[in-house]
Design a protein around this nucleic acid. Structure first.
Lengths: 215, 215
DNA sequence: CCAGGTCTTAAACAAACGTTTAATTAAAAC
DNA sequence: GTTTTAATTAAACGTTTGTTTAAGACCTGG
């Protein structure tokens, strides 16, 4: 162990290690299901360090959620806006967001599992993030699509829908891995392509569109 | 309060009330975040009744997961098989599954939030359910589509994808409700239609399919 | 009426929980 | 070299946790 750090960095490293282990444990056992003693042991720090750095367990959770959601929002901003047509930007966004999810898998799982929780300390801040996300999706996807003549889509439905699609693989991964004959964790590349294709053209993908109306 | 039940039914009613309140509380506070005393108070029963009926807290969770997943599997079996073309059956399945999710909202949230947990007592049983689900989806969707000439789809990707799409609205609902200017819980009918349309034809829906290849 | 099963209760158990305190070490600043 | 500041430690705080126990209430079948 490299205990000989420059001094000033020592605390920062402990702090970082706590966050990383918290994401790992919260994803596997849940936020409430993970004790601070177990977390401290996994991170190799003293129990009191967690409250020293973050003030409380809930504040640590907030920091994890904030870090992940801010990064996701950043991806949406960067990939969804531009002069290209909606299809191109949507395809780019899906690929980048899936890649972002893959590299922040634990934080993603923590965020999704804590989404439905109605803790008053956290829900309002999640709503604030949601408002920004809806704004981007409405401006860059829904409005352009409506201008092209497609039916008007509500960003409040499309936003969660897109996010859930891109996250589905990671959400189900623990179960899939336990299933025989499949589920080995392959590169997320082809998965991103599948999601993009379905979002753009449906499950049959760029063919067979000459069916009559259904129902 | 109708305390005057036929006698033999009394226990069954208490048991039922415990399950209902457990779904409600687990959905809002998480499984680990809900204490048995709080649950007992909400259900109007004595603390010891929970262990009397279910043996342990984890067994109660298992029963909730099992009830929901069995119902979901039943919907998939009933709506996905038949002689109609894939599009028709998929459309029907999406509408029925969304309706099922809507009427079992709390159990759905509990199930999704507990999906990534790797508790050895539960994960193997979740995997058993997943295997049955993958079997149905492969037989009724992936294979017929491949026969029609579409690209071969992996049920291990399509299954979680479909489920996540149909669940997205309910998963994000607590956050959406807190957001201003939208998110009022409207009937799931138009939401089911949106999901079905995207699955079948993509986000632009039944038009504008004459774009060139992307990227 | 009484025996037998189901259901309900209050009380206690050890263990684990999140948080706080006070004392100590180590590096930085002056 | 001394003062400040940041990082780390062990120990204890009072609650709350899931579970168990033993006794009592209730209704049912004989």
């Amino acid at each position: 162990m490299s205990k000989k750090v420059n001094g000033k960095e020592k605390g920062r490293l402990s702090r970082q290690r706590i966050i990383e282990e918290a994401e790992r444990l919260f994803a596997r056992q849940g936020y409430s299901g993970t004790g601070l003693r177990e977390l401290a042991a996994a991170a190799g720090v003293n129990l009191a360090m967690i409250n020293y750095f973050f003030g409380s367990k809930k504040q640590l959770l907030k920091e994890i959620l904030d870090g992940f959601l801010a990064g996701y929002l950043e991806v949406a901003r960067q990939e969804l806006q531009g002069d290209e047509e909606v299809r191109v930007r949507l395809d780019r966004f899906v690929r980048c967001a899936v890649a972002y999810f893959a590299s922040h898998r634990d934080a993603l799982l923590v965020t999704i599992a804590e989404l439905p929780r109605d803790d008053p300390e956290i829900i309002e801040y999640k709503a604030a993030w949601g408002r920004q996300m809806m704004e981007i999706i409405d401006r860059e996807i829904c409005q352009p699509l409506a201008r092209e003549g497609s039916r008007r889509l509500s960003p409040h439905l499309i936003g969660p829908l897109l996010t859930s699609m891109m996250a589905s693989r990671f959400l189900f991964a623990p179960v899939m891995e336990r299933m025989a004959g499949g589920g080995e964790v392959r590169g997320g590349r082809e998965y991103a392509e599948l999601v993009s294709r379905i979002v753009l053209d449906g499950i049959e993908g760029e063919r067979n569109h000459n069916y009559g109306s259904v129902n």
